[in-house]
Structure formats: structure tokens, C-alpha cells
């Protein structure tokens, strides 16, 4: 503590190193968001409703720009339902109309019925702006860590403990 007071520049530099690690991670995420035009360009599959295409824990990369063609039937999209904060990954199975006003119906490959049950009360279809991106690439299974962490909160405590230990035991 005394050394911090004696050398404020060095303390500021150390704090900055830590801050730059965090801010660079955040800005890379935001950069990806801006490029893909999606508020959440990487998502983890939480349910088995798209099996056998996607399993729980698959990491999906999204693209939310219609540069060459409109979102069409057969595309796998991620959408948000008003009032629910969990994005859903399903396939577009019907489309009526063109442009931003086109009415889209989605369904999980592994589900018996289409998604009308999942939509908000009174909502029978999606429009383009409900969608936060189409799946363009995926990495199997690597997102499972986040599922484990959210389903078993004690793991977070364990992880924080390990990280704390590492920080304490290892300087620089």
C-alpha cells in the first residue's frame, strides 16, 4: 500500500493493464456486434429443440445483414420474443410477403408443433426485426461451460475461488 502512494505512476500503470484487458475483450465483442449488426453475435444453444442440427452447448455465430438476399425459408435464425429475454434458435418454415413487413413462422426441427405457442400473447408471427441473426457457423459443445455455470451456480463460486488463488499466488 505504501509503495502505491510512493509511486502513483506505477500504480496507475498496473491498474491500466488490468483495465485494458477487460476493455479490449469488451470492445472486441462490440466490434463483432457492429460487424454482424447483431446485439449478440455469438449465442449458446440451450435446448435440444434443433436436434440433430444443433445440440445443447453448441456455440453459434450469427450474421444479421441482408446484403444479398432476404431471410428466407429454411434458414436457421435466432429471435427474441417480446417480454422474454432468452433468445430462441429455430428454423424459418413459412414466409408471407417480402421486405421488413414479411411475416415469418419458425419451428424447431425436433419439435412437433411450430412456434406460435412460444410467441408473445397475441403474436402469431415474427417480423424481420424480431430476428437478431441467422446462423452462419458453429462450434460444437464448447458453449457447454456456460450452461453448466448457469445450471450449477456453485461452480461459479469454485471458479472464482480458483481464479482468486491464481491471482494471489502469481504476480505479474
Amino acid at each position: 500500500m505504501l509503495s502505491v502512494l510512493q509511486n502513483p505512476r506505477q500504480a496507475a500503470a498496473q491498474l491500466l493493464n488490468f483495465g485494458l484487458i477487460l476493455s479490449t475483450a469488451f470492445m472486441m465483442w462490440k466490434g463483432l456486434s457492429v460487424i454482424a449488426d447483431s446485439p449478440s453475435p455469438i449465442v449458446v444453444v440451450l435446448s435440444g429443440s434443433m436436434e440433430p442440427a444443433f445440440q445443447r452447448g453448441d456455440l453459434l455465430f450469427l450474421w444479421n445483414r441482408n446484403w444479398f438476399e432476404e431471410t428466407k425459408v429454411g434458414e436457421i435464425v435466432v429471435y427474441n420474443v417480446k417480454g422474454k429475454d432468452i433468445p430462441i434458435v429455430h428454423r424459418v418454415v413459412r414466409k408471407f410477403g417480402v421486405g421488413d413487413e414479411a411475416q415469418l413462422l419458425t419451428k424447431g426441427d425436433n419439435n412437433v408443433a411450430d412456434d406460435t405457442e412460444l410467441y408473445a400473447r397475441g403474436q402469431d408471427y415474427l417480423v424481420r426485426k424480431d430476428i437478431i441473426g441467422s446462423v452462419v457457423a458453429y462450434i460444437p459443445f464448447v458453449g457447454y461451460v456456460t450452461i453448466l455455470l448457469s445450471e450449477h451456480p456453485w461452480l461459479k463460486t469454485v471458479m472464482l475461488g480458483i481464479m482468486g488463488l491464481v491471482v494471489v499466488l502469481q504476480r505479474e
Binding site: R9, A12, A13, L16, G19, L20, S23, F26, M27, K30
Partner: peptide
């Protein structure tokens, strides 16, 4: 101290931009 002061100024401006982005987002 002009070398380290310049480095700190650059780094903290970058950090400030990131913080602002985080806040408005």
C-alpha cells in the same frame, strides 16, 4: 516522465471510450 505519462494518457483515454460505450450500450 513524459514517456510513461504519454502511455498512461493513451491507455486511459482508450479505457474511457470503452467505459462510455459500455454505459450507453
Amino acid at each position: 516522465h513524459h514517456l510513461s505519462d504519454t502511455r498512461l494518457a493513451l491507455g486511459y483515454s482508450a479505457f474511457a471510450i470503452c467505459a462510455a460505450t459500455f454505459y450507453w450500450d
